[in-house]
Write a protein that binds this DNA or RNA. Structure first.
Lengths: 148, 148
DNA sequence: CAGTATATGTCAGAATGCTGACATGGAGCA
DNA sequence: TGCTCCATGTCAGCATTCTGACATATACTG
């Protein structure tokens, strides 16, 4: 009976390693986003809007992995800065389709470049092929039902 | 020039995929830990103490990826429940070496088994070999300097 | 020895995120 | 049509975590 039932050595735990990488990524992203007065969730919101204009608050929340209440507050703060814009009335149902303003797109572009550099640097120890394989393996276990 | 400078399609971003897996893991862990009145950071604290008795508050914080202020509060709450114990005075310097009580060990055992099951289930779509490779690839880019 | 640098524990305040709750708009069904 | 169910936006309260600050203990250095 080799298979342990407890977590065992943390360094051998896939969950812990994922957490390590996630923490490293988040710290590095926070650092480069600070000059733009963005946090990771704020950046995520902009990036999602950039790729999928018209997303509602609830949809943004799901894809950014926060509750819709948190996203609501976050979105309002960004709106005060004039980065995204929402109509006053819902064109249908209650969902308010959100889009980036010119300023929002400009800010997103800067942020996206910075984040891309961080990712590239963080995963640079891995070869192109390893990175591809890593993404495949990770995606393999993500519920693809979350796809937009 | 194929190499984009911005993040590009999120689904193709390693960072986003890591975040997806991390979120899924965290949600699943929170769920199974709730009956034990534990959160992920609280569990992490106990697991670290189980594997490395005598860690100080600051060391726990670093390995659990929170600030030492947060860990301090968290640790005190756990102490009120009698799970870990710290001496009143530091045997050397200011660091207070923390250890699990009997209750703490018992709680940790239950939690660890539950978390192990979650990890196992979450990564079950991947073969044993793929999991091994995944861990290797991820660990390859974690600063091993964080090792205990 | 005195002065400096580093690490630790801790306090205080602000920001962030979550849970619970409620009202509203649409879809499905009797 | 009327009823139920679900998704959305939003308000309120609570918990958690962070940043900034300060005191203390040790190590290092001139």
């Amino acid at each position: 009976m080799e298979q342990a039932e407890t977590v065992g050595d943390l360094e051998l735990s896939l969950g812990y390693v994922v957490k390590q990488v996630h923490a490293a990524l988040r710290t590095a992203m926070d650092e480069v986003l600070r000059p733009l007065e963005l946090t990771v969730p704020r950046y995520a919101c902009l990036e999602l809007l950039g790729q999928h204009p018209g997303l509602s608050n609830s949809e943004l929340a799901r894809h950014a992995f926060v509750t819709r209440q948190s996203m609501n507050l976050l979105l309002r703060r960004l709106q005060e800065r004039g980065l995204p814009a929402r109509p006053d009335q819902a064109p249908r149902g209650r969902a308010l389709p959100t889009e980036l303003t010119e300023d929002g797109q400009a800010t997103l572009r800067k942020a996206s470049i910075a984040v891309r550099a961080v990712e590239k640097q963080l995963f640079s120890p891995l070869s192109e092929e390893q990175q591809h394989r890593l993404r495949e393996d990770l995606a393999a276990r993500v519920d693809s039902s979350i796809a937009i």
